[in-house]
Amino acid sequence: MTTTFDSTVLRDVTLRDGLQLTGRLLPTSRKLEIIRFLLDTGVPELEIGSLARADLVPPMANTLEVIEELTAAELTRCWVWVATPRHVEKAADAGARNFQYCFSVTDAHNQANIGRTTEASLDAMPAATAITRTVGGRIQLCLATAFTCPFDGPVPEWKVLDILADPRTGGADDIVLCDTVGQAIPSQVASLVEQAKWLRPDCRTVFHGHDTWGMGVANALAAIEAGADVVDGSLGGLGGCPFAPGASGNTAVEDLMFATRPSYLDPPAFARIVGFSEQLLAELDEPPRSKAAQGARSRARAFEWVIADPASTSR
């Protein structure tokens, strides 16, 4: 169990999926502060923004400015959400090298989220991949609604597997399986991750979960046990898709960290993360959703993960 967890990458998605539903555009300087805090803490990878239209997703409006301010070394650990070849071009011109090319398994959600059919997004992926290669970058195939769709309901596994087997997705470096509405259960997650690993052994497999139905940590652990290389989460459980009715926050980073105990995490580091997350949630006027963060503020002082000194949470 420990060895499995130690080999799994935790990716923080606060600055993309986490901010989408807040309606709040954080200044570039504040986003840079969040990125550098997380990187300095030891979080291996981050999702730092999106090329979605600013009029539709206002919190993403300064993504290109954020990319331009990061160093090349920092950008090697950062991913940017894209949905078209033109998005890849713009992000690459700003300095990005890791691109998460996203579309939905179901047409209904892809139309709501991106404004085109799933087939149209598939058709465009080879061009996005070619642009990625010209800048020496990496590209992820990110499949939203891989388990259920807010409009069409349950999504058959074969629809996901057909996309993974499609030659147009053959250039992907990673496969991202998204439980967009947080309705999957561990057995479903384990099954799809296992089949994705079998179909695309050349790719890392990423599980992107939401905690809408309280299955976030359980699903992430099931994904890890099934062979997932990366799991996603956001500070304080922020997040959700603005184009998916019923979607709520991502699985909280604090909960995933507490469950998996990555090598860079110890009680003092956890206290700093909890304090930083609490400050961000207050800034955004968002409620705390992390159960581990709540536990860290309990009175069970004999447990080393409980925060005893408020000063230990300062930035």
Rank of each mutant, 00 (worst) to 15 (best):
N62K: 13
N62A: 13
T63F: 01
T63S: 05
T63Q: 06
L64R: 10
L64Y: 12
E65P: 07
V66D: 00
I67K: 05
E68R: 01
E69L: 09
E69P: 04
L70H: 01
L70G: 00
L70D: 01
L70T: 00
A72W: 06
A72M: 09
A72E: 11
A72R: 02
A73R: 02
A73I: 09
E74C: 03
L75M: 06
T76H: 13
R77W: 01
V80N: 11
V80G: 04
W81E: 15
W81M: 15
W81P: 14
W81T: 15
W81H: 15
V82A: 06
A83G: 15
A83K: 05
T84V: 03
R86C: 03
R86M: 13
R86P: 02
H87R: 07
H87I: 04
H87T: 00
E89P: 00
E89C: 00
A91I: 02
A91Q: 02
A92M: 09
D93W: 11
D93A: 08
D93M: 10
A94Q: 09
A94P: 12
G95W: 14
G95V: 04
G95P: 13
G95A: 05
G95Q: 09
A96D: 04
A96V: 02
A96P: 04
A96I: 02
R97F: 07
R97N: 05
R97A: 05
N98G: 06
N98Q: 08
F99E: 03
Q100S: 06
Q100T: 06
Q100R: 02
Q100K: 04
Y101N: 01
F103A: 10
S104T: 11
S104W: 00
V105E: 10
V105Q: 13
T106V: 14
T106C: 15
D107L: 13
H109G: 15
H109C: 15
N110Q: 12
N110A: 15
Q111I: 11
Q111Y: 11
N113G: 14
N113W: 00
N113V: 13
I114N: 05
I114R: 09
I114Y: 05
G115R: 06
G115D: 08
R116N: 05
T117M: 07
T118G: 06
E119W: 04
A120I: 07
S121A: 14
S121L: 11
D123A: 14
D123V: 11
A124L: 10
A124C: 12
A124P: 07
M125P: 03
P126Y: 00
P126V: 00
P126M: 00
P126R: 00
A127V: 00
A128I: 02
T129V: 03
T129A: 07
A130D: 11
I131S: 09
I131V: 10
I131G: 02
I131T: 09
T132I: 08
T132Q: 04
T132R: 03
T132Y: 08
R133E: 13
R133A: 14
R133W: 08
R133F: 07
R133I: 06
T134E: 10
T134A: 06
V135D: 08
G136A: 12
G136K: 12
G137M: 13
G137L: 13
G137I: 10
R138E: 12
I139Q: 01
I139G: 04
Q140S: 05
L141M: 01
